[in-house]
Amino acid sequence: MFRGRQPVPLPIGILAGAGAAFFILPLIGLMLRAPWANLWPDLTAPESLLALRLSLVASLSATALALVLGLPLAWIYARVVFPGRTVLRALTTLPMVLPPVVGGVALLMAFGRRGLLGQILDAAFGIRLPFTTAGAVMAETFVAMPFLVLTVEAGLRSMDRRYEDAARTLGAGRWTVLRRVTLPLVAPSLFAGAVLCWARALGEFGATITFAGNFPGRTQTLPLAVYLALETRPDAAILLSLVLLVVSLVVLVVLRDRWLGSA
């Protein structure tokens, strides 16, 4: 049903305007303070490029890892009833509300050199995760994966399961149904979840610096580079944060229009 423009009640308009200004003013502040003349030299400085490349590699790897581990998890949450499901789901989405620094400490307790699993990895295989790029990917996955799991779970719950039933009655096996019917039907939420997960991974700071440390080219992602640059090269820090901002903004706008229906 189509609805024309409807008049906005004044109080709602004022509060909504204040709400929008609350987010837009800081962005304008950043834009106005940005030293545009240095844009190119600062962005192409070796340390910036190093951090940018590492951020892309780490956030994309984290998204891939989240898809491999998170998709099955979301499917089980949506389709299987078992005791403790609510508690398990809460536990695996905890990183959304946990301060990321605490998440980093928890990762050290599990996968660090003295951690529960980490000491076994070290002793048996000589694998040490802290201070490595793999560690940075893990920290990002830890914080970002819940976004993917929750989005995909919601997609699976809201899809019309009669298509799956129809495919089954027509003789398709469970694997074929999953591959040819279920996944295509939840593709929009799968894509949305993956992009949200990627954007969160790209901005990750606390867990990364706590678990993986900070070393240029190895674990110093863009947010870490921004934080350190604030103390020595504040201009470069502003420009680097604008890069993060623009990337996230493009992702959110495209996501909204292409996959969530432009309303």
């Binding site: 201070f131 610096i209 440390g213 900070n214 070393f215 674990t219 110093q220 350190l228």
Partner: peptide
């Protein structure tokens, strides 16, 4: 070559 360049002494 340090394993990490931390942001402060406490870290």
């Amino acid at each position: 070559v340090p394993a990490s360049e931390e942001t402060d002494v406490k870290a």
